[in-house]
Simulated assay, not measured.
Amino acid sequence: MAMIFHKFEEVRNLLNDPKYRHLEPVNKLWDIYNTVKNAKKDTLNQNEGENLRKHPLIVIEGLDGSGKTTITYKLAEKIKAALYRTPPLCTDGLRGSFDDCKPLRRVFYAMGNYIAAEEIKKLLEEKPVVLDRYLTNA
């Protein structure tokens, strides 16, 4: 049965499990998340409860090879939007480190979505965002 993370706490708990917490890629993933999360806080205005999103978020999902990336590039260009993909670019160097362990592979993609969400919130303050895939199939 596939492991699906419905809450950030589930991701956090697995990454903090003593079996995994000592692993360098896990610590690097935490560092990336904390850096992105803290950078976001610096940009918020005083009304944190206020919805800061000023522009639309458009998410393109589909089967592998169905043309998602082509569509996202063309759409982002057409509407002058930021183009974003998951997993986020800031995690690319870690991707292979999580491939050999099924629970860690899934948590890598889930944490990537939390990182993406933080980065996208900031982008949406400036312009629309077209997102190439958010649901994970790892």
Results as ranks from 00 to 15, higher is better:
91 T>A: 06
104 L>E: 03
68 K>Y: 07
62 G>Y: 01
106 R>T: 09
30 W>P: 03
92 D>I: 05
29 L>N: 03
41 K>F: 14
109 Y>P: 07
125 E>F: 00
52 L>F: 12
102 K>T: 15
27 N>Y: 04
101 C>K: 02
121 K>V: 09
111 M>D: 08
118 E>A: 01
22 H>A: 12
51 N>V: 07
5 F>A: 03
75 L>F: 10
42 D>A: 13
116 A>W: 03
132 D>A: 01
45 N>V: 00
7 K>G: 02
131 L>A: 08
134 Y>N: 10
46 Q>N: 10
46 Q>L: 08
39 A>F: 05
77 E>Q: 09
52 L>P: 08
37 K>Q: 07
63 L>E: 15
105 R>Y: 11
16 N>C: 11
119 E>R: 04
25 P>D: 11
118 E>K: 05
69 T>Y: 06
124 L>N: 13
39 A>Q: 14
29 L>W: 08
23 L>T: 00
28 K>S: 12
92 D>K: 05
132 D>L: 07
45 N>P: 13
72 T>N: 11
16 N>R: 14
121 K>S: 14
60 I>Y: 01
134 Y>P: 12
27 N>K: 10
74 K>L: 12
37 K>E: 14
44 L>T: 02
24 E>P: 03
109 Y>N: 09
54 K>S: 10
59 V>D: 09
104 L>R: 02
101 C>W: 06
64 D>M: 00
66 S>G: 05
3 M>R: 15
114 Y>D: 13
17 D>T: 08
97 S>I: 01
51 N>D: 15
117 A>C: 06
6 H>K: 12
111 M>R: 07
